[in-house]
Design a protein around this nucleic acid. Structure first.
Length: 747
DNA sequence: GACCTGCTGCGGGGTG
């Protein structure tokens, strides 16, 4: 479609809005999206941050809505009187964050004002009176979180049909944040339940900046018919100024004196970021506190205003808001030290540069992070700080190979080539199926198994759950005293389930650990998960300041703090971040190459040279199995999931296998023994259930406690293993052992 | 050493 005709398909009132913005042309993605969205297709718009994705969806959507109220042609399928409105929500827009909803509400109210369509926001901070009014008189565009969507089903099941009876479009914002997660499975299930309730399915539009796999995204958006989804990919024209700085950590014995490198990095951040507006991403809340403290002390020592503000998920809304306000305020410079809390597109004004301390978690995360700077056509600026230990006699292989540095270069190379790694196939998620079963029973005031299974396990997140497995799951729910069957066959919630359903925490598909509140002078600074290690008198760094613990009140889960002069960063619980296949596969390429990226500083160049020397010394260009003493080290360059699965497959045959960074370590084994066992495994490939049975704890997600051992293994076989990847690794190792076994030597 | 996200409804009474 040509430039002119795409714009001309917009309704005159929508065109007027475009003129009034002073836009001289539509952006690439906006132009491309108009036709398919107007034609009622399912559409995915993949375009970089700040390229007007929201408008790409809503210019055509508003056109479709305006045509009903103010037809420009004499012929319309809708109400001929023009002013009549359906008593239904017209457009449902699901967004992962309350802050994103608030941002979009402001923008969309303005646009939708031109066509007299109301825009409503609905999340936990919106007054219940407003929600009640909307439920009675539904209309226009509704911006909602998945959790509020869920609450509507649980508490107002019968009204779903009317609320969404004449739904025209569904928009999913930040689509990538839902793919492969429990929350995403919940959202898919709820959308399918709307379709079942209304007997029709509105076209769906997904918006994202960082989609790695368009087929996966299309399957998420329209599971029943992914082939029909139109994918619009805007050119990513972001220019990136890049620097990677290397730091060496001195070790004295087994004591890690990384404080030295921390100080050096903080010093560099202080000198280069003071006076501007910047974001510094770190990989843990603990690091946020450590660096905030170092930078505050540095500012105090120089008697200057502290421009550095902490931001992470355990800080109170007030503390976080103060940091966001500071960096948004154009009249004073501010830098925010944050975790992934500021990774998504919440409006925080213009950011000059982005720093990343430590290896980025993934290609998608890195792309999202540096996209926070360089908006409106300016080049983005990214500075990455990487530490590696000094090499001494006892330094291990992973450190000698400078794996943090190499992994970081690999991640940067992939993003620079426009390659974003898709999330691993999530399999199905029984935990969310338990939640959806309880939700549907609550919404309908009881349901039969014959009704539940086709509704919940149709095309979508639970399509692999056959009637046999689902019956087993229902038995588990009954055994856990959550449901019972009435004489007429209807499944009903027990009093125990009623209690869980009434608690607001039911609406989220994910689990949150129990947390204790940290207060000072009646001000809540934030929360800490299970503070068993905190006792009165202890010193603590929190919210960027230093405290002494005054009292700990276990019954109220309250920790009272008073200012102090020293402090230690707190320990948070956390999941292990997973490194993906693409990043790992890229690493040998970097070791084998002689190219030295110009964006490495002198210290990082030395680290890379050291890594390549080790690589060559160990003959790693030609082999991936090393013998050290009686142990074997294997370097397969695959994802953590595949490493985990391979370790299980070898353990199943009695090999003492552990994972260290990107390597597998096998104790007390010779290459001949390994060769023999790999032959055995390849001749009798393990089945996923056998391997999953070796995992000691199957309880990962929120409702896993309901499942019996059988379903727990079933769930882990689907979500935690990569069997094809493991078979490939074992075949490669087998080939290498066949060819090179005679020259396997010690290192 | 190791992220993040979310969250009732309803009716009755009083006030401007």
């Amino acid at each position: 479609m040509s430039r002119v005709s795409a714009f001309q398909r917009l309704h005159p009132r929508v065109q007027q809005w475009v003129y009034d913005q002073g836009w001289t042309a539509l952006r690439d993605a906006q132009e491309q999206a108009i036709g398919p969205i107007l034609d009622g297709c399912d559409v995915i718009v993949s375009a970089a941050t700040a390229t007007g994705k929201t408008e790409a969806a809503f210019l055509p959507i508003c056109t479709a809505l305006a045509e009903r109220a103010y037809p420009t042609s004499g012929f319309t399928l809708e109400s001929p009187t023009g002013t009549d409105r359906s008593s239904s929500i017209d457009v449902l827009c699901i967004s992962p964050l309350k802050a994103l909803i608030d941002d979009q509400w402001t923008r969309l109210e303005q646009l939708c004002g031109y066509i007299d369509v109301p825009v409503h926001r609905w999340h936990g901070d919106v007054a219940s009176s407003i929600k009640q009014r909307l439920r009675r008189n539904p209309s226009g565009v509704l911006l909602m979180t998945p959790e509020s969507f869920e609450a509507t089903f649980v508490n107002h099941g019968p009204s779903i049909r009317q609320l969404f009876g004449d739904l025209q479009r569904v928009v999913i914002d930040e689509l990538h944040s839902f793919i492969g997660t429990a929350r995403g499975a919940q959202l898919q299930s709820l959308l399918h339940r709307v379709d079942v309730a209304t007997g029709r399915s509105a076209p769906r539009i997904g918006l994202s900046a960082t989609l790695g796999d368009h087929d996966l995204a299309a399957r998420f958006l329209r599971p029943a018919n992914p082939g029909t989804v139109r994918v619009i990919v805007a050119r990513d024209e972001t220019q990136l100024n890049l620097e990677l700085r290397g730091y060496t950590i001195a070790r004295t014995g087994r004591t890690d004196t990384s404080g030295g490198a921390h100080h050096d990095i903080a010093q560099h951040v202080y000198h280069h970021l003071r006076g501007g507006d910047h974001l510094v991403f770190v990989n843990s809340r603990r690091d946020v506190e450590t660096y905030s403290d170092l930078l505050t002390r540095r500012s105090d020592a120089d008697h200057v205003v502290n421009e550095f503000h902490p931001h992470h998920g355990s800080l109170s809304r007030e503390v976080r808001h103060a940091a966001e306000t500071a960096v948004k305020d154009p009249s004073r410079p501010a830098t925010v030290i944050c975790t992934s809390t500021l990774e998504l597109g919440v409006d925080i004004g213009t950011i000059q540069t982005v720093a990343q301390i430590g290896p980025p978690a993934s290609t998608a995360s890195l792309r999202q992070r540096f996209g926070r700077s360089g908006r409106r056509g300016d080049a983005a600026t990214l500075r990455v700080y990487i530490t590696e230990p000094a090499i001494e006699a006892g330094t291990g292989l992973v450190d000698r190979l400078r794996c943090h540095l190499t992994q970081t270069i690999a991640t940067i190379n992939l993003v620079a080539a426009g390659l974003i790694e898709p999330p691993a196939d999530p399999g199905f998620n029984y935990s969310t199926l338990v939640q959806q079963t309880l939700s549907m029973i609550a919404a309908r005031g009881g349901a039969t198994p014959a009704r539940l299974h086709p509704t919940l396990c149709g095309p979508g997140p639970f399509q692999d759950v056959d009637p046999t497995r689902y019956t087993r799951l229902l038995r588990c729910l009954a055994k856990a005293d959550l449901i019972y069957q009435a004489a007429d066959g209807l499944l009903l919630p027990t009093p125990k389930a009623e209690k869980l359903l009434r608690h607001p925490s039911f609406y989220a598909a994910f689990q949150t650990p129990e947390e204790w509140r940290l207060v000072t002078h009646d001000t809540t600074l934030g929360t800490l998960p299970v503070v068993r290690s905190l006792i009165p008198g202890d010193l603590l760094l929190f919210a960027g300041r230093r405290w002494r613990i005054r009292t700990v009140d276990p019954t109220r889960r309250l920790v009272e703090l008073e200012p102090a002069s020293g402090g230690n960063p707190p320990t948070f619980d956390g999941d292990i971040p997973e490194v993906g296949d693409h990043v790992r596969q890229q690493m040998p390429t970097i070791y084998n190459s002689n190219d030295v990226p110009e964006w490495l500083d002198a210290a990082a160049k030395i680290l890379l040279t050291e890594a390549r020397e080790t690589w060559q010394q160990l003959d790693l260009p030609h082999r991936s199995i090393l013998t050290t003493g009686g142990h074997l080290v294997i370097l397969p360059w695959v994802s953590d999931t595949t490493l985990f699965t391979t370790a299980l497959a070898l353990r199943q045959h009695g090999l003492d296998t552990s994972i260290d960074g990107p390597t597998l370590n096998i104790d007390d084994t010779t290459p001949e023994q390994l060769h023999h066992i790999i032959q055995t495994v390849l001749a009798n490939p393990p089945d996923a259930h056998e391997l999953a049975a070796l995992i000691p704890n199957h309880r990962v997600d929120k409702w896993d406690w309901v499942l019996d051992e059988h379903l727990g293994i079933d769930a882990d076989a689907a979500r935690r293993l990569n069997l094809p990847g493991t078979t490939h690794v074992l075949q490669q190792l087998h080939a290498e052992l066949e060819a090179t076994q005679p020259r396997l030597t010690g290192t």
